[in-house]
Computed example of a mutant assay.
Amino acid sequence: MKKFYSLLGVTSLSLLLIACNGDADTSEETDNETDEETTGQSDEEDDVAEADDDGEMTVEEIIDAAIAAEDDFQSIYSHSVMTTGVDGDTEADVPEEETGVAQEEELIEYIYHHEDGSVSNRMERMIDGEPTEYTAGDSEYTLTYTEEEDVAYRVEQVDVEGDPADVNVRENQFEQMMEDYEVALEGEEEINDYMTYHLTFSDEEEVRHYWIDQDTFEVIRLENEHAENPFRITFEVLEYELDIDYDEAFFQLEDVIGDDVEIEDRDQDEHLEAEIEDIEEDIEDEDE
């Protein structure tokens, strides 16, 4: 059964992939790249650096397994942290008060793929000192609620061509990067008790790091490098579990939205405008 990548997965990966252009010169080439062999494959495949010939997986095999993993699980729980900020070692012209300052968001996500191909998802976003933000929904509606507020917002999903369950966002992203960047297997590393493959995607200006669980081929950590743009994003999974059961009410936020909370319907444009206004107000509050 084809699966639909959740809001968090799409947002996290997309933010990392478009936020910065990194510096490929800071990435060290491994001995495996020196021993790379050409096998008469397509030009795209020829650019993929392979691991040595001792039975270990090649970069291409790791990526193929990661793409396939996106279609294999029925449900997932994940607890992760996203850190954004300005590199303290940057030489770019950045206000001193912003250099080295990072914001950390704790994210908890649940995804469930139903037998009919529909998908339910729920995300909890927590920043220290601020109320928890909840987002839940399916292919028709998204429900958003901020802790302690008296209104929750229900937004109809944007219509897309085809069945969302047939979209593999991870496949699209990996294929695009394999076309645009040199790919290398940097080695194996343990991240939060998960043994991972460390892959890099680089060109003359940028490096994108991926750490992929060797057992399930889920992405455990994402990180970017850039010499010109000091903005950094790190996304790291602290723990996760596959194929667990959920009650449907859990994806309607019934455990956090009280009977006294009003549910207000919004269209996409109205909701986006409100979100932008909230961000602008937060920036103004910080500047005061």
Rank of each mutant, 00 (worst) to 15 (best):
Q173E: 15
Y5K: 09
E262C: 00
Y110L: 05
D267P: 00
D47P: 00
E60I: 03
T11N: 06
P164Q: 10
E36C: 05
S14V: 08
D93K: 13
L107H: 07
Y112T: 05
E205S: 12
G9W: 03
L107V: 09
E186D: 11
E104C: 06
A152Y: 04
Y5T: 13
A19W: 06
Y181G: 10
E188K: 15
E133M: 07
D87Q: 02
N168M: 12
E190H: 13
E130S: 07
E45H: 04
I257D: 00
A19R: 09
Q214P: 04
T132V: 12
E149H: 01
G100E: 10
A249F: 01
Q157C: 04
Y197N: 09
G129W: 07
S80A: 14
D247W: 06
S118Y: 08
V158Q: 13
Y210I: 10
G88T: 01
E45F: 02
T99S: 15
S27N: 04
L143E: 01
E280A: 08
D163F: 04
W211N: 06
W211A: 08
D43F: 07
E147N: 03
E109L: 02
L15Q: 13
I63G: 12
D46P: 03
S12K: 06
D150L: 03
I220D: 03
V155Q: 07
Q157L: 01
T234D: 07
S6V: 03
E96F: 14
S80E: 09
V155E: 06
E262K: 05
D163V: 00
T99D: 15
D247H: 10
V160Q: 14
S78C: 07
F235W: 12
I233E: 10
L17W: 04
V169N: 12
